[in-house]
């Protein structure tokens, strides 16, 4: 976690844009939350999902952050996506759902709750990013 799934129409977002969105999402998430970069997952899915808009951001995060942080995060992510891909505002919507951190194990460690991260966890995240 976090896990950002971008639902997009088939062949609508070329690799260069996908890579740029993934990097931007990682920068934004880490900038807003302080999480290690290696924990940010971004996936592009050309599934035939039925959302209100052709492009949809379906994000999943650890629960426990303030409404202000969550709203800013979603706004920043969606803004970056639109800027990179050129998708019109009316064609793109999104949400971030949350679940308890303790339900997920990543890098062999149970995820800490937001605000309860330890030095060991940060160190592991940095090591994973470098490895």
């Amino acid at each position: 976690m976090p896990y950002y799934r971008c639902v997009v129409p088939k062949d609508s977002v070329p690799y260069e844009q996908r890579a740029a969105v993934a990097k931007a999402f990682t920068d934004i998430h880490c900038g807003n939350t302080g999480a290690p970069r290696s924990f940010v997952h971004v996936v592009f899915d050309e599934a035939d999902d039925r959302w209100a808009t052709p492009y949809f951001l379906d994000g999943g995060n650890r629960a426990g952050r303030s409404e202000e942080v969550k709203a800013e995060l979603l706004s920043d992510l969606m803004g970056a996506f639109r800027e990179i891909t050129g998708v019109a505002e009316e064609d793109f919507s999104g949400r971030i759902t949350e679940g308890p951190a303790k339900w997920t194990m990543e890098g062999g460690m149970v995820l800490p709750e937001p605000g309860e991260e330890t030095e060991e966890w940060y160190s592991h995240g940095q090591a994973a990013a470098g490895g």
Binding site: A19, F25, V40, H41, V42
Partner: peptide
Amino acid sequence: DIPSGYGFRGGE
């Protein structure tokens, strides 16, 4: 499977 080029972690 996530197709090659569609899945990223840490921006890579």
